[in-house]
């Protein structure tokens, strides 16, 4: 992963690193990989990642960044692959009841909307 020399990088900072996600996106596109980007566009309740958090996914399912700290990444990755397939952007709504929240891994009962788009068209 590339880091800006003037900005010290720590692992704990990585969640905030839109720069790193976007830089990686450009690098992957340069390698000819097919890449999709997921972005948290709204949250409600105790969602683990703030609006603007991003996850980069390639067709093989490689990931950089995060949109939930692990809870919903699986579902997002499969939608990202679908977006790579048909080229259409989609809005994923993990608006879940507390009970549902357990199923998709949002133990806290939060709500998250994630926008998924194909990159580099």
């Amino acid at each position: 992963m590339s880091t800006n020399d003037s900005v010290p990088h720590t692992d704990a900072m990585a969640w905030a690193g839109s720069d790193e996600v976007l830089g990686q996106a450009a690098a992957w596109l340069d390698e000819g990989r097919e890449v999709a980007l997921a972005t948290v566009v709204s949250t409600w309740g105790s969602s683990p990642r703030p609006v603007g958090s991003q996850l980069l996914v390639d067709r093989q399912g490689n990931m950089v960044g995060s949109v939930s700290g692990g809870c919903i990444e699986g579902a997002v990755v499969s939608e990202a692959r679908a977006a790579l397939e048909d080229g259409k952007p989609r809005l994923l709504d993990f608006g879940v009841s507390d009970e549902m929240a357990w199923e998709v891994g949002l133990a806290c009962g939060g709500k998250v909307e994630v926008f998924v788009e194909r990159l580099g068209d």
């Binding site: 976007l22 996106a25 596109l29 980007l37 990159l119 068209d121």
Partner: peptide, 9 residues
Amino acid sequence: MKRAVLDDL
């Protein structure tokens, strides 16, 4: 996102 927008960003 278009490549040109990503590069500008």
